[in-house]
């Protein structure tokens, strides 16, 4: 199996503070990889380096087979990204948002129409295509944002806390969409604060103070730590760090 993401000793320092400390992670193609960590553990910094928003201090990484330092253009074309902040334009309609992202990623007008219609059909949002995104409920917006991030069929999609503030039913539906994307071969790299969601991942890592403190499948991690849930492991790993910081 080829690797979708290869990270080797990736480090980012801000002055004297090391936000990400020589992390090494491999993610297989088609995997749903959960990237966990407490607030301030360095998750967002790590993701920003992988998607090219931040230059690493040292270390290397390849995403979708391309070097993030020397082939950033190819990396950008191969990935999708949905941030924890809402990523569509409120003052544009659903259709206009789709047209914009399709256009940016170089889809033809016909492709945009075809994929956009298919997407709205699947989401059962076909009636809303002329509605301003700002008027939609948050849950719909998040699902829409995810689908738009997948419009150009990226090899790897990065989701930074995609289900923040969303109700449990919508979260469930959201994860069904994530599985469907993985089944089509897209690698999903997702951060979350919900530990039940962590259990849905094929594999996950837990970041503490810029380092990866644990990595493996949910089942393997529970065995390793002798804990009944990921939640338990997370708290056990994160607590000493929090105590140290205080």
């Amino acid at each position: 199996m080829s690797r979708a993401i290869e990270v080797q000793d990736l480090t980012r320092r801000f002055g004297a503070f090391t936000a990400v400390d020589a992390i090494t992670v491999d993610v297989e193609a088609g995997e749903v990889f959960g990237f966990l960590g407490a607030n301030g553990a360095g998750k967002t910094t790590a993701i920003k380096m992988l998607i090219g928003l931040l230059a690493p201090t040292s270390g290397t990484a390849r995403v979708a087979g391309f070097d993030i330092l020397t082939q950033s253009e190819e990396v950008r074309r191969s990935i999708g990204y949905m941030s924890q902040r809402f990523s569509l334009y409120d003052d544009l309609t659903v259709r206009e948002n789709i047209t914009l992202y399709g256009g940016i990623y170089g889809l033809t007008d016909a492709e945009i129409r075809e994929r956009g219609d298919g997407m709205l059909e699947t989401l059962q949002l076909a009636d809303t295509r002329k509605a301003l995104v700002g008027t939609l409920p948050l849950g719909w917006k998040q699902k829409l944002a995810f689908s738009v991030a997948m419009l150009h069929r990226p090899k790897v999609v990065f989701l930074d806390e995609p289900t923040g503030g969303v109700d449990p039913v919508t979260r469930r539906q959201f994860w069904e969409m994530i599985y469907a994307a993985a089944a089509r071969g897209t690698t999903v790299f997702v951060t979350t604060h919900y530990m039940d969601e962590a259990e849905y991942c094929d594999r996950l890592s837990i970041m503490v103070d810029g380092r990866i403190a644990a990595m493996g499948s949910p089942a393997a991690l529970k065995r390793e730590f002798g804990a009944p849930s990921i939640d338990e492991i997370f708290v056990r790993l994160a607590r000493p760090a929090a105590a140290g910081a205080a």
């Binding site: 998607i51 090219g52 928003l53 253009e73 950008r76 074309r77 990935i79 990204y81 941030s83 924890q84 902040r85 809402f86 990523s87 569509l88 334009y89 409120d90 992202y101 940016i104 990623y105 170089g106």
Partner: peptide, 13 residues
């Protein structure tokens, strides 16, 4: 402010 700039910068633009 809205966070859409990140999305644009991650795109091939």
């Amino acid at each position: 402010e809205r966070g859409t700039m990140e999305i644009l910068l991650v795109s091939p633009l």
